[in-house]
Design a protein around this nucleic acid. Structure first.
Lengths: 140, 140
DNA sequence: ACACAAGTTTAGCATTGGCTACAATTTCAT
DNA sequence: ATGAAATTGTAGCCAATGCTAAACTTGTGT
């Protein structure tokens, strides 16, 4: 019984490597979208600064994003999102925004809400996100 | 400028490997405590079943927990929590319980709340946890 | 007591994500 | 136009987390 080597039977437990990979992808496309917005383009160094990791780490992570179809880039050029990447970025940043506003509505301070929302955003299901939205609607 | 190779200057970004390591440690000690409670002892196979990973993976993870002082075990024997491990398990399961109850109070269904709380619990700060508690106190 | 089942450990491989050091390319100033 | 600075890429290291296969203990039943 070979225990499932891909994502097929996903019990409620098992936050596997690929979950983390997805989180990282979401963080990256979100950051790329932001940096493109604010700086006009997104270089490897910008991402390195943003995530506080070395440019080498960024470079290889971007390579995986290219492999997975989220990003396109040419040698020594800035990185750009594909259509797929943009879609993920938008979903991700929208979810992030809801979580952030929710925490603030709950009474959490801005600075802590910003930190916690980054961690939490990857783990809220559609249902929970809707419950958060409903709470905010109710409380003005 | 060597970019900080240990945990020292931790910006709000950078959910690094060691964060994941901590999450895994929390999940494991929590599971070990539960399994000890419900089964009388906690074997490697029990953890493997619980996390839906191979017993080999569990074995090595337990090795790291031993190295980090959360767990003690002798060859071919069940695993037990150290005092440090018990402390972490209790904190962790308490936090988990608050998040779970909070989500349910928010209107999320039991089954989804159980899944989401497992992901979220590792990312809520003390302040956010208190805000969740306050919300529940207020709403009976 | 001995064999077999269940559980554990070891060996060995892959991927991810971190790093430094060095090479290559592009960009910018003079 | 050329050389320095900034940026990007490559090589090679390490640790964590996943796996299978095979060896080794423990414990149970007959």
């Amino acid at each position: 019984m070979p225990k499932s080597q891909n994502r097929s039977n996903q019990g409620s437990h098992s936050r596997t490597r690929s979950d983390h990979a997805t989180e990282l992808a979401e963080d990256y496309v979100e950051a790329i979208a932001e940096l493109c917005e604010s700086l006009g383009s997104c270089r490897v160094v910008d991402l390195a600064r943003h995530f506080e990791v070395s440019h080498v780490t960024v470079n290889r992570t971007v390579g995986r994003l290219v492999r997975d179809g989220y990003v396109k880039t040419e040698p020594y050029r800035p990185v750009e999102l594909t259509a797929k990447g943009k879609r993920l970025a938008q979903m991700s940043s929208q979810r992030h925004a809801v979580v952030l506003k929710f925490l603030i509505a709950l009474g959490v301070s801005q600075s802590v809400a910003e930190i916690d929302s980054e961690g939490i955003e990857h783990h809220v299901s559609k249902e929970t996100l809707e419950a958060m939205q409903k709470f905010m609607d109710k409380n003005i």
